[in-house]
């Protein structure tokens, strides 16, 4: 009885939060990288995570969809407890889109197949249907002209937008971004940030690890500052970024701004 109810989305588990992290800890060997992180993210909320290199931002983000299983703690996404022993992690992951710093497109297939692949394998769509949706998603991001190219033959900005299209084609309820623009040449950053802004305005729930303080200030509902494996400070974007309370955040902001 407990196992079946765990599979079914139950938003009352989290009082309506789209993502609930409770006391997440993660160690690599003897090094503890996350030292007890708790965070609730509401549906349609945009949360930016900032913090110095090595503070555990990527690790936390990868915990949310269990790419990095936490050593301990509870993760509930869209009413499904992923840390429950019998959780259908693959199914849950298909509702959480992830965009990586280095795009991680599939270099051996064309752009259209990059987007369509998960639709046929995970959603078991017929090939034609999958390709129709992939094409639509790519056109929406103004990538329609590139569908028969290989990832290596398009610009980094285009690659990252394909990666976003690939995630969006799965119709996720949550999108995770891990420094989506930091591997891009400066002139290509804006195009990707524009897509992310649009997505935020459309009501997508987003967790965005970023060094783009302008983006955080403009788009984020909340900014979370991580330092040394814990959330050191958080709050409304404008307040956190303009009137930091902790000395560590003050120091961090003075370095990046």
């Amino acid at each position: 009885m407990a196992t079946t109810s765990m599979q079914r989305p139950d938003m009352s588990l989290t009082d309506g939060a789209a993502i609930r992290l409770r006391d997440i800890r993660k160690s690599f060997g003897s090094i503890e990288v996350l030292k007890g992180v708790s965070l609730d993210i509401a549906p349609q909320e945009v949360v930016c995570i900032i913090g110095p290199s090595g503070s555990g931002k990527s690790t936390l983000l990868k915990c949310i969809n269990l790419l990095q299983p936490p050593s301990s703690g509870t993760i509930i996404v869209n009413g499904v407890e992923l840390t429950a022993p019998k959780a259908d992690v693959n199914k849950a992951r298909s509702t959480v889109g992830m965009v990586f710093q280095h795009f991680n497109l599939f270099p051996h297939v064309d752009i259209l197949q990059n987007v369509a692949m998960a639709l046929t394998t995970v959603k078991r769509m017929p090939k034609r249907e999958a390709e129709r949706i992939a094409r639509m998603q790519l056109e929406r991001l103004e990538l329609g002209a590139l569908i028969h190219k290989r990832p290596a033959d398009i610009s980094g900005g285009q690659q990252q937008r394909v990666a976003i299209a690939r995630a969006l084609a799965m119709e996720p309820e949550v999108m995770l971004f891990d420094e989506a623009t930091s591997a891009l040449d400066p002139e290509l950053v804006k195009g990707v940030l524009d897509v992310m802004k649009e997505l935020a305005h459309s009501g997508m729930t987003m967790v965005v690890v970023t060094h783009e303080m302008g983006f955080a200030r403009e788009v984020a509902d909340r900014v979370v500052f991580m330092d040394d494996g814990v959330i050191a400070e958080q709050g409304v974007a404008r307040e956190v970024l303009t009137a930091p309370r902790s000395p560590r955040l003050q120091e961090f902001l003075s370095q990046v701004l």
């Binding site: 992951r93 959480v96 990586f100 991680n104 051996h108 692949m117 998960a118 690939r166």
Partner: peptide, 24 residues
């Protein structure tokens, strides 16, 4: 990153191996 990308889309380990990692 290829395995991570496949898994993040909800593909299983074996699906990701077969369709993404092994061909490369």
């Amino acid at each position: 990153g290829q395995m991570q990308a496949g898994r993040s889309l909800g593909m299983t380990y074996l699906q990701t191996m077969r369709k993404i990692v092994v061909p490369q």
